[in-house]
Design a protein around this nucleic acid. Structure first.
Lengths: 333, 333
DNA sequence: TTGAAAGCGCTAACAG
DNA sequence: CTGTTAGCGCTTTCAA
């Protein structure tokens, strides 16, 4: 029974070439402990020579685990996710895990449930970056970590890694206060992180003996920032500063200010949130609160791996301290 | 032999519940033609009742195809890809294909070869969105379509779907010409599409009896646009308009102009390229050439599916006509 | 330590 | 049209 020489090599070919059994090859691949050094090397050599690549499908089928994790991104349009993803992969990749990414907004358009998609792929775990629609994750059986949002409703047994949004709101506000501003408005969006950022703002304002002014309620996109800024300008014409719910909203606010003939930071200061690539563009140069998404990503991955290893461990919840990146959009009043 | 009631249902359970054979279930799943309506319905009901989900791993292993395609994105930071991806999925999803996305820039940092990753996953096909590094795809055995770049080196037997970049450069330039501009510079980047856009610009300028001025040579990021604009301003102080290689570069140019005390569009007009979400921000309001990435994506997917169906078909190369989206960054000089 | 053997859940001929 | 029969390539007891 001569073998076909052209086909993709299998574990069987490797075994034969190395003069060992199939199972030994499997052990070597999984880095098993009790294998003699000589045979281990022989196997590795055979793998090299044959250009062997294990079949994920076969291994998934046999082991009932895919070594893959699904990553749910809120919206690809908000570049916030880029660093998060990089952090995630910086620990998932070396651990031999594959990650597949889906965009909630995109999926919503096509009417599919992205979680279903991941479940069909049999991902071993899930990372939800951003705020899941209520119900989307209810009763999920697969290990999940929520990254970037600290309030996950009850009924979702997930680990959490997030920035301290309330602290971030405080940082932004205090920066403005320290600069000498007093008439500071906040542009908020919907969702948990937005609510916390707002709370940080409000708390800091009150502590300074100032009355908070919050506008916005819809989404967290550029439009929403624009509309909220307009509303704030309308409600309090003497404003000298904005704390925006995120960078994209801040860009919307910039447009509203320009329409009112107000210049930034000369007349009005603006602080964004997320320290996304947007904030770093020279033309925008937004002072922004950095949530350290890279670290959030890395920590999320570590947490997920830990849970995969021990499903019974107590839930973890980690908060990362944000910091302020000062650029050109803020100045004394 | 009583079955375990708790385990995930298999095709076998479905068959039993529907009173048919395993193979019939398989046929129904694949939408095979010669199945009686009654049995088809019976199977679907059983699937519904059991909450059955086919195992991709098993199916991949048995059929030697994963029904998945790998999508290589140039850089997640350039939001150009969002629509492309949406278009891609609008045809891949209904066809039952899964798509996994990787970012070349991200992978480059981690030192991994993303193509290798996809090959290990045994994707059935590849979509390369943007310009592949030379050599990255050389001698690739898996069906590939390159989206967005029309020049793929020899040695890569790929289908191509791209916007007509030369025509786009022409559109942008002609728009400026029609507005009455004459001193128009072009900010170019590296790579094939950039070269074609530049050629379109140059051709149009010359046809109008004007001397082209091109600056920039590094990358295509915001920095590069900034630097190129500065160089152009330096070389020709009387400039009244820029055609930028893409939207991100245009934003860089905006910063350079502001530094020179020049206002847009009052003193200088700016045209971007890609019509990315960036261009639509009110604060930027960039006139931009739309490459119709959604369509490019959809067409790429269709092309890939066709090739998967017939590997021997002649190579296809499609060029989509770009169009101009006029916003607030251009005006008469 | 190493080898043999029994599947994982599904597809794909091939017979009925 | 429907049922039977082999595997796909790998993991994983269980013996040797």
């Amino acid at each position: 029974m001569p073998a076909e020489p052209a086909a993709r090599p299998t574990i069987y070919d490797v075994a034969q070439r190395a003069g060992v059994s199939k199972s030994l090859v499997s052990l070597v691949l999984r880095d098993a402990p009790h294998v003699s050094e000589a045979r281990r090397r022989a196997v590795h050599e055979a793998i090299e020579e044959l250009g062997y690549r294990p079949s994920r499908a076969a291994s998934a089928l046999a082991s009932q685990r895919t070594r893959s994790v699904g990553v749910l991104i809120d919206d690809f349009r908000n570049p916030w996710f880029v660093e998060l993803l990089a952090g995630l992969r910086s620990v998932l990749d070396p651990a031999g895990y594959t990650s597949s990414v889906a965009d909630l907004t995109l999926e919503a358009v096509s009417g599919r449930n992205p979680v279903d998609g991941f479940l069909a792929m049999h991902v071993d775990g899930l990372v939800v970056a951003g705020e899941p629609q209520p119900g989307l994750l209810r009763g999920l059986a697969v290990p999940t970590v929520v990254a970037g949002v600290r309030d996950v409703g009850p009924g979702l047994a997930a680990d959490v890694v997030a920035g301290d949004d309330e602290r971030g709101g405080e940082l932004a506000t205090r920066h403005l206060l320290d600069l000498g501003h007093a008439r500071i408005a906040h542009l908020t969006g919907s969702g948990g992180p937005a609510a916390r950022r707002r709370r940080g703002y409000e708390r800091t304002m009150r502590a300074a003996g100032l009355e908070p002014l919050v506008t916005g309620a819809g989404g967290t996109a550029e439009d929403d920032g624009y509309a909220a800024a307009l509303a704030a300008l309308d409600a309090a014409p003497g404003l000298t500063a904005f704390v925006a719910g995120n960078d994209v909203m801040a860009v919307g606010a910039l447009a509203a200010l320009r329409e009112h003939g107000l210049s930034v930071p000369h007349d009005v200061s603006v602080v964004g949130y997320d320290d996304s690539p947007l904030a770093a563009y020279r033309y925008l140069a937004l002072t922004s609160v950095a949530g350290h998404s890279h670290e959030v990503g890395a920590e999320s991955a570590t947490t997920l791996l830990a849970r995969l290893g021990d499903p019974e461990a107590p839930r973890r919840r980690q908060l990362l301290e944000p910091s302020l990146v000062v650029r050109g959009s803020t100045a004394p009043p």
